[in-house]
């Protein structure tokens, strides 16, 4: 709204005077009252666990729930983690898991969005089908895929042997060299629909006349995509990539149900590893320190996410 209109409408509101903080708080006391229930619940269910996790990360804890027997040990837990080869292995696997999953989910989602963007018979049905992975429960999907991958009873091995691509059944998820990638395939399958929806929404914002102008200007379909469509998708792509990355970083259900991080930790990623440490081996202190590290990484990603979002706002506000 322009200032002119603003003045016209709010003619009777006096110029705001400089007010002290206390006065400001008092003035909006009801606003605080209204958000108080939500804030209190958040403090209890989110704030306190975060605080307690950070606290525990500085303690040597007993392998039981008798946590009052914990002993302060400074940064020992962090040192333990950062010097352990397993930490670096799991970190590498987490990076592979996150980057590869995010990349392929995005690219396949982009392809699907572009394919579904043009009109053709059966588009609605196809779109609905492609949305299924996103809407089915991750737990159910994990179990189904576990069976599909099964070396003796799995459909995938059966198909491959039948076609003759391999001569004996492959053990996708019980094999240290393939387990992580087998999980990534499932993960990509599960979340490419999300990228597809986001990018389909983004494609709607590409002005038709721009594509026509490019067509008259002599651009081929690929050039039109590269010069017109893609630049318009930049904002939504950033957001999609970041959301996927955050989500993949935090993945738990698929790896936990399908392999539990195994075999021999070959598909372990941070979250499954932390879970294992905490609830498998009851090393609360170390697990907490892990969680704190993860928390810091997530905050950095979150910062970029918010920045990408608000940058889009600025660009839009400028036009």
């Amino acid at each position: 709204m322009s200032t002119v209109q603003g003045q016209a409408i709010f003619r009777d509101v006096p110029e705001p005077k400089r007010v002290g903080l206390r006065q400001k708080v008092w003035n909006s006391r009801f606003d605080y009252l209204y958000v108080a229930p939500a804030i209190i619940v958040m403090l209890i269910v989110i704030g306190y666990p975060i605080y307690y996790t950070i606290e525990l990360s500085f303690f040597n804890t007993p392998a039981s729930l008798a946590l009052s027997a914990k002993q302060f040990n400074g940064l020992d837990n962090y040192v333990t983690i950062l010097t352990s080869p397993i930490f670096w292995k799991v970190t590498w696997q987490t990076v592979v898991w996150t980057v590869v999953s995010t990349f392929f989910a995005f690219m396949i989602g982009l392809g699907a969005a572009l394919a579904l963007h043009r009109e053709f018979a059966g588009r609605g049905v196809l779109r609905a089908i492609l949305l299924i992975p996103w809407v089915v429960s991750a737990v159910a999907a994990s179990y189904v895929w576990k069976w599909l991958y099964h070396s003796d009873f799995g459909a995938i091995s059966a198909m491959l042997t039948q076609v003759g691509l391999v001569d004996k059944p492959i053990n996708f998820i019980d094999n240290t060299s393939t387990s992580l990638y087998a999980l990534i395939v499932v993960n990509v399958w599960k979340e490419f629909s999300f990228a597809m929806i986001m990018l389909m929404a983004g494609l709607q914002t590409v002005p038709d006349t721009l594509l026509r102008a490019a067509q008259v200007d002599g651009a081929s379909p690929w050039q039109r995509f590269w010069h017109v469509t893609f630049p318009h998708l930049r904002g939504v792509s950033m957001v999609t990539l970041l959301l996927l990355a955050v989500q993949n970083f935090n993945s738990f259900i698929i790896p936990w149900i399908m392999t539990g991080g195994g075999p021999a930790g070959s598909s372990d990623i941070w979250i499954t590893h932390i879970y294992q440490l905490a609830f498998g081996r009851q090393r609360w202190g170390v697990a907490s320190a892990y969680a704190v590290i993860l928390f810091i990484v997530m905050m950095v990603l979150g910062y970029f996410y918010v920045r990408a979002l608000t940058k889009g706002d600025d660009a839009r506000a400028a036009t």
Binding site: P207, T209, L210, R212, A213, A214, Q215, V216, D217, G218, A219, H227, V228, P231, T319
Partner: peptide, 20 residues
């Protein structure tokens, strides 16, 4: 195709490439 017709077009909303 449009590109082979050797015509130029000016659009109502100008249709300039915003990123260029």
């Amino acid at each position: 195709d449009p590109k082979d017709r050797d015509i130029a077009m000016v659009f109502q909303n100008y249709a300039l490439y915003p990123q260029k």
